[in-house]
Design a protein around this nucleic acid. Structure first.
Lengths: 213, 213
DNA sequence: GTTGGTTGGACAGTAATGCTATCCAACACA
DNA sequence: TGTGTTGGATAGCATTACTGTCCAACCAAC
């Protein structure tokens, strides 16, 4: 498959594909001559993943490259590879000042993790992210307690344990495993967010809507 | 309160505050002379909300303005105001080609909404968003069925009905009501997303981590 | 009354991000 | 022998969210 066909099948313009190649998101095709390269199904698949992460997952290109670098690093074991990829999917929190508010928020996060007996790396970005959200909620005047967070933790745990984790083929080839992991994290993350907004609209409408029985 | 104090209390630089004023995110202060304006607690509160939506909610400035315009439009009833604000919080889907894939995806969304007996406007942006995600999941090779979506719908409905909707003071002043609504949608949306990633990491670690009992 | 700092308003500039556009020589295929 | 495509390189562009500079008008302190 040449680049034009790759473009036609994926719907991605050729200059954009070249850009992804430059940026290392897409592996180079197999060179057949100085000005010819051959692309295969793997490239098409990778290209679709990139577009999914960009358009649906709204991940920056730099994060996508981190994910891909983790996959392509053969030195990493599956566990490390998944961890690296997973962390790269995290939006990330810019550095912030140390303050008692932050310390308190971090303690709440630690407590939540302990309550649910979760096994989380100390440096997991989601810890800081959650702490940031708690701090922000405080400055907004609402003061979240652990009891406000547990319903979300329970819901998340149930979803992950009963529906998501079994979809990941841990014994398949590396690339298949990460891809499933990424899809589970990003795509179903958006599914959940969107569906939650539907549920909110519906509940809000039931309470407030002008009577139309 | 003058602009410098507003900046000091909020931690937002003065040029940025000026920018928000220009963009209509922040209402003008009360002019006391040609080169003096007075700001109050409402401004500080609004400023914190803007930062929360930007930093935690990752909403574009244009969307924040839509939310604020809805609040400031006195012609709108509370129901309409909440709806407009809620829709502005949606990331939005760029226009796409009509195709059987999209039709099928939309039908699946309609079916889900019907199954849960949700009351959703035909033009709700979350419909198209969910359809987009379904289409994308298809191109990625996983083929989501209604049964794959229902666990998320059940979880979302439970969260919204038992924990979120009661936090919104529907009989309070408009501004208080929308603010609570926005916080519920955006901030707790992020809480859920982040906590879900924690749960994923933990489950993944339990299955894959090198044994460290 | 002078002086020094602050304010609002206007406008230009900037950094990051995700593309797009153009050019070119080297092919491949008819 | 021509026609078109390719890879590689480089430059340009649109958007977003600020940031920087300038200035006359002020207010408050000395």
């Amino acid at each position: 498959m040449r680049i034009s066909q790759l473009s036609a099948e994926s719907g991605v313009p050729i200059p954009t594909i070249k850009y992804y190649l430059r940026e290392g998101l897409l592996p180079q095709g197999e060179q057949t001559s100085a000005t010819r390269a051959e692309y295969g199904q793997a490239h098409l698949r990778r290209l679709r993943l990139i577009r999914a992460l960009l358009e649906v997952g709204r991940l920056p290109v730099a994060s996508i490259r981190k994910v891909i670098d983790a996959v392509d690093d053969e030195n990493l074991g599956v566990h490390q590879m998944l961890g690296t990829a997973h962390y790269a999917l995290s939006p990330g929190v810019e550095p912030h000042e140390e303050s008692p508010d932050w310390q308190e928020a971090r303690e709440m996060v630690d407590q939540l993790i302990a309550d649910y007996d979760w096994k989380i790396e100390p440096k997991a970005p989601a810890r800081e992210e959650l702490a940031q959200t708690i701090v922000t909620l405080r400055t907004l005047g609402t003061d979240p307690t652990l009891a406000d967070l547990t319903p979300y933790a329970t819901a998340a745990q149930t979803l992950v344990q009963t529906h998501e984790i079994h979809k990941i083929p841990f014994d398949a080839p590396r690339e298949t495993t990460v891809e499933a992991h990424i899809i589970g994290t990003v795509m179903y993350g958006r599914v959940l967010d969107t569906i939650r907004r539907l549920a909110q609209e519906s509940e809000s409408a039931r309470i407030l809507a002008p009577q139309t029985p």
